[in-house]
Simulated scan of single mutants.
Amino acid sequence: MKRITLIQKMWSPVALGLVALVSVNAQAGTTEGTAPKDAPKTETILLASNATAAKAPGLTLTYREATSSYKPFSAKRAPQAAVTAGVGELKIGYVVAMKGSKPNGMFGPISATFDKALNVELGPGVISAGAGLSFANWSDDEYEIESSLTTIVISPRATYHLDLLQNDNLDLYGGLAFNFAIANYSAEYTGNDPDVKKYFQDVDESDTDSELALLAGATYYFTEKFGGFLEVSTGDWNRASLGVAIKF
């Protein structure tokens, strides 16, 4: 089937332009009727020049053909959770708050956690299992007594990643951690007072502690793999920490 649309407009008393557009929808093997939906569209454009027509008894027509394929609009991807089954997360952070206040001169605690999302979906989210490790050191040299405290905390943990907001970038989670802490404390008198040396006893001892802590946090991924996080906990060793997150 052919449909011809003719548009004519007067440009000036001397020149007259004629433009005709012929649209042909066809496909090899089709008969008279509506062309298949996915058939290529072929356009034949006829151009007429009045200047050429003035030199010849009739109009001289030129044409060109252009074939284009129409692609359907791409469907928008439905948003997914930032953490899905099989995803691993490495978080490296600095503990900004502990129980009470940090002693002056304390380094850290520096924390690192790794969580792996299991293939276990529970409601609008997934369950992750992992562990954390933190390290802190405190030292002081007051009244000619050198003292130091070093702590290492190992924390097996389980977290639940909630996907109520349907956001690819934001991960909200909560969970439970078992903190096992190893602490080493030492103190030594470095002065020259014989009376202090006589009564002061050097200290070098270790101790352990354990606790069960609730935790909650949020991670925002600026890119597909890299983001930042904030996590709070009820534990004595880690009340609030923030840092960077890497997704695998």
Rank of each mutant, 00 (worst) to 15 (best):
P109I: 04
L164G: 07
N184Y: 14
G175C: 06
G175Y: 05
T30L: 03
Y143Q: 14
G88M: 04
W138A: 11
L6N: 07
S23D: 14
F229V: 02
L59D: 04
D163T: 05
Y185M: 13
T52C: 05
G227A: 02
S49P: 01
D209Y: 15
N119K: 10
I145H: 07
A112P: 01
I92T: 12
V95Q: 02
Q80G: 01
L214M: 12
A54I: 05
K91W: 01
D209T: 08
A218M: 07
F178A: 11
V232I: 09
S134N: 08
T31G: 11
D195S: 13
A75N: 11
A187T: 08
V22P: 00
V95H: 01
K197Q: 14
A216E: 03
G125W: 04
R239D: 04
L59W: 10
N50Y: 10
I4P: 05
T42F: 01
K55N: 09
Y94W: 13
I152D: 00
Y143L: 13
Y189R: 03
S206N: 15
Y173I: 03
A35Q: 05
A78F: 08
E146N: 15
T159Y: 07
Y94S: 03
E121R: 14
S155H: 03
Y143R: 13
P13D: 14
I7Q: 10
F178P: 03
K76N: 06
A75R: 12
W138K: 08
A245W: 00
L172Y: 00
I7L: 07
K37D: 09
G58H: 06
P124R: 12
K225N: 12
L149C: 11
A183T: 15
G17N: 15
I246C: 02
D204G: 10
S147W: 07
A177N: 13
A53V: 03
L16V: 06
S111N: 07
T62C: 04
L214N: 06
V153E: 02
K247N: 04
D140R: 15
L18F: 08
F222E: 02
K102M: 11
K99N: 15
P72I: 02
A181P: 04
F226M: 11
W11K: 13
N137A: 14
L230V: 15
N179W: 04
L165M: 09
N169C: 02
P36S: 08
P109Y: 00
F135A: 09
W237T: 10
I92L: 13
R239K: 15
W11E: 14
Y143T: 06
V126L: 01
L90I: 10
N179G: 08
S12K: 09
L230D: 02
G235Y: 04
T52D: 11
L47I: 13
L122P: 03
P36H: 04
L176Q: 05
T159W: 06
G235I: 00
S148H: 14
L18D: 05
D236C: 01
A35P: 14
G88V: 06
S12V: 03
V83N: 08
P79E: 07
A136D: 09
F226S: 10
Q8W: 00
W138S: 12
L118I: 01
W11A: 14
I4L: 15
L46C: 03
L21H: 09
S155L: 06
T30R: 08
T159S: 15
I154V: 15
S68Q: 12
K99I: 01
P13Y: 12
T42A: 09
G132T: 01
A177I: 07
A20N: 06
T208L: 09
I154D: 03
T67R: 12
S68K: 12
